[in-house]
């Protein structure tokens, strides 16, 4: 005498890390910080997966340096995931990494029905190969267009332009509160604007990197798996020109985001 052995039907949610493993990542412990951040985020990601029976969360990872490789080639349920450390060394084949993702987002191998995939690109530098070609191959895939694309810039040498291209068109730029456009006589810096998940997230130290990875692997996975609570003030179609799921707020940071305090760890 028991509830019949059935469960809510679910759809796959593909979550793919694209990790820069170029030589510069070896400096100031950046590679270790990224390995740690991802490894530490997995239990939280497993909790979110468990809380969302409508989604089957499947994780993969690509590493790119001289070439791009599948670091985790098989879509792996997060509870089965073992993170082996990425090693730094070489140049930055980011374009090839995008090509690799593109090949996996065409159907097949992509399932016919799924939830929006989540792609997280993490880089500390500039692509050294044909980024444009990789991006255009990727964006030809309907599943890539539907995907939630996030980018994390590690340190200050990351190419924010390229990361923004990956995310898609920048949202309407917001000036810091109280600032009149043009009044200060200079363009506000990227970092000086309010943070948005539709812009590259700037991780200037290991703590903020871990926070962003945690946010992407929990809050964003939750938002992509199930509808979120909706507020009345939101515009009916706000966000929708940018993405097909409403993105959760970024984690509040202890440091003032407009305050450029420079690197703490590297």
């Amino acid at each position: 005498m028991a509830f019949p052995n059935v469960r809510l039907s679910n759809r796959p949610l593909h979550f793919i890390y694209l990790c820069d493993c170029s030589g510069s990542m070896a400096a100031q412990g950046k590679m270790q910080a990224l390995n740690q951040a991802i490894r530490q985020s997995l239990p939280g990601m497993a909790d979110v997966a468990r809380e969302n029976p409508e989604a089957r969360v499947l994780v993969r990872a690509i590493s790119f340096s001289d070439r791009a490789f599948w670091h985790i080639p098989d879509p792996t349920p997060v509870t089965d995931l073992v993170w082996t450390d990425l090693q730094a060394g070489g140049i930055t084949a980011m374009g090839e990494a995008l090509e690799l993702v593109a090949s996996q987002l065409s159907s097949p191998p992509m399932e016919e029905r799924a939830l929006p995939p989540v792609l997280v690109l993490i880089s500390d530098g500039q692509p050294t190969d044909d980024f444009e070609r990789g991006l255009s191959l990727l964006m030809r895939q309907p599943w890539a267009q539907k995907a939630v694309r996030l980018a994390i810039a590690m340190g200050h040498d990351a190419d924010l332009e390229v990361l923004q291209q990956f995310i898609g068109p920048e949202p309407f730029p917001r000036l810091p509160e109280g600032e009149v456009p043009g009044a200060s006589g200079h363009q506000p810096r990227m970092a000086a604007r309010s943070r948005s998940p539709r812009r590259p997230l700037q991780a200037s130290n290991a703590t903020s990197l871990a926070q962003y990875i945690q946010w992407a692997s929990t809050a964003v996975v939750g938002a992509a798996s199930r509808p979120a609570s909706r507020l009345g003030g939101e515009e009916l179609h706000s966000n929708q020109n940018q993405s097909n799921i409403p993105l959760p707020d970024l984690p509040p940071t202890l440091m003032d985001p407009t305050d450029d305090i420079g690197p703490l760890v590297w």
Partner: peptide
């Protein structure tokens, strides 16, 4: 969490539900 039941992760009776 009710999602554990809906996700089929717990043994539960029809009476309980």
């Amino acid at each position: 969490g009710a999602h554990e039941h809906v996700g089929g992760l717990v043994d539960i009776s029809l009476q309980t539900v």
